[in-house]
Amino acid sequence: MAVPGFSGSGVFAGIRKDGREDLALITAEKPVPVAGVFTQNPLTAAPVQVAKKHILSGRARAIIANSGCANAATGQAGVEAAQSCCQKTAQALGCLEQEVLPCSTGVIGQLLDAEKIGQALPQAIESLSSQGLSRAAGAIMTTDAFPKTARREITIGGRPVVVAGLAKGAGMIRPDMATMLAFILTDAKVEAPTLEAALRKAVGWGFNRISVDGDTSTNDTCLIMAGGRAENPVFTEDDPEFDTFACAVIEVCQDLAAMMVADGEGSGHLIRIRATGAPDQEFARQICYAIGHSLLCKTAFAGCDPNWGRFVSTAALQSQRLGRPFYTDKIHLAIGNEILLEKGVWTGPKAEEKVARVMKQDRYELHLDLGLGEESFWILTSDLDHKYIEINADYRS
């Protein structure tokens, strides 16, 4: 995975216990426009606190990210450790400290050893290459089964433009923002306000539509950097070129988001939950997440069990909690192309047998029509089986 104007590397710094590469470095040739979106969890990790301050300048030269330690709930010492990593990276690259954005992922409550990061930096810098972004994607993994990368090529003003991304995330995934780190890189010539507008659209259509276990991380960070090598005419949010660019960013984020859910800790199925026929989009969103977060529904997905009563009763209860109407005789439920419920009435055992076969597929859709309006929403979720318990019960051991 290469993006003109950017280099990456992944090295072992000794933060992780298993000897895997745990330090990623991504650099631009010079300070470039940057934008970011961060966790909504009020227990904000130290690197997020530092990155949010540094990004205010709208320019960045590097991203320094580690796995194996979240550096969250570590107080002022954690902030100083994150700042130290930025200082050392800036000194090595010859840039300003605020042009370095720190990110961490791993166990909460553990203080990041900035000395280990500093000792590994020379190797990380020496290893930088245009093809090293894939190594960087591997170095930020925690419980991920595979590195996650995505790429699109578009044309803006007659110039070819690359939009690519790398991410980590498999557990502690839910909206606002999805545990995840995601770094989007482009060679487009575009300024920070336009980048932020595109990123916020992409997060809304990608990372904010996924759920694995309903928990929001302390460290969620999504950054986008624009190197400008494409030499396209500069555009703003009001120009037609913005839609082309934003669409590519959205598609990259959606690809990465789908990989996160597919790689959900212990998951075997990726399920798109679509609610239609709602009086407003927010109601449809709430119904989707009620089903996507429900342990009963997620274990039914794991067992390939078309237990439609769980899905419908979850939607009904959520409607009651919201003080919204729910009319059973208006409900339609389908999984794949097979209808399980029509006007609130079960379609029979043969339909259920067909749905059971659909649910054995790696990916499928659950579609619930509420019969109350024209608005809709969709999310991606995963099933939940014994492996999730095993992974998380042993996470710190």
Rank of each mutant, 00 (worst) to 15 (best):
K360F: 15
K168M: 02
A35Y: 10
V161T: 01
P306V: 05
L366I: 09
D215E: 08
Y289E: 10
W308T: 04
I26R: 05
H54M: 03
T149F: 15
E375R: 04
T244L: 09
L340Q: 09
V34Q: 00
I224S: 00
W205T: 05
A226S: 03
G132K: 03
S267G: 11
R174T: 14
G94S: 02
P349L: 01
S211Q: 08
C103L: 11
A35T: 00
V203F: 13
C85L: 12
F183C: 04
E390S: 04
Q123M: 10
Y364C: 07
R321E: 13
V234I: 12
L111A: 02
T381K: 06
A114T: 08
P42L: 06
R61N: 11
I389S: 12
A192I: 10
F301L: 04
A45S: 06
K360R: 13
R135L: 15
L384K: 08
V32T: 02
L133N: 01
A170G: 14
T44D: 02
L295G: 02
A284C: 10
D305W: 05
K330A: 11
A302G: 07
I173M: 01
D238H: 14
G78T: 11
D238K: 14
D383Q: 11
W308H: 11
Q98S: 01
S84M: 13
A145N: 12
A248G: 11
L317N: 07
G169N: 02
I15Y: 06
C247I: 15
G36F: 14
R174P: 14
L295F: 15
K30I: 04
E126L: 15
C85A: 12
Q91S: 08
I125Y: 02
L121K: 01
H54Y: 07
I389D: 11
I391C: 10
H269S: 02
I287F: 07
A393C: 14
P233R: 06
F207D: 00
C297I: 15
I389C: 08
I250N: 00
I273H: 11
E342A: 09
E390R: 15
T155F: 08
V190F: 04
E237S: 14
A258Q: 15
A28R: 00
A137D: 09
A136F: 13
P193G: 01
S211R: 03
I117F: 04
C69N: 11
L195P: 14
Q98P: 12
L333M: 03
M359S: 01
A192G: 04
I117G: 08
F326A: 09
P279H: 09
Q119N: 14
R363G: 08
V355P: 07
A60P: 09
G10K: 03
L370N: 06
I389K: 10
L25N: 00
A137P: 08
S9G: 10
T186W: 10
G138V: 01
A164D: 08
S129Y: 09
G94H: 05
F311C: 00
Q318M: 12
V312A: 03
L372T: 00
D220P: 01
P31E: 01
F207H: 03
D329H: 13
C86K: 10
L96A: 13
T74E: 01
V161S: 07
A60L: 07
R59Q: 09
A137C: 00
E80W: 05
A51I: 09
L23H: 06
G157V: 13
R159N: 08
T347I: 07
E374V: 08
I26N: 01
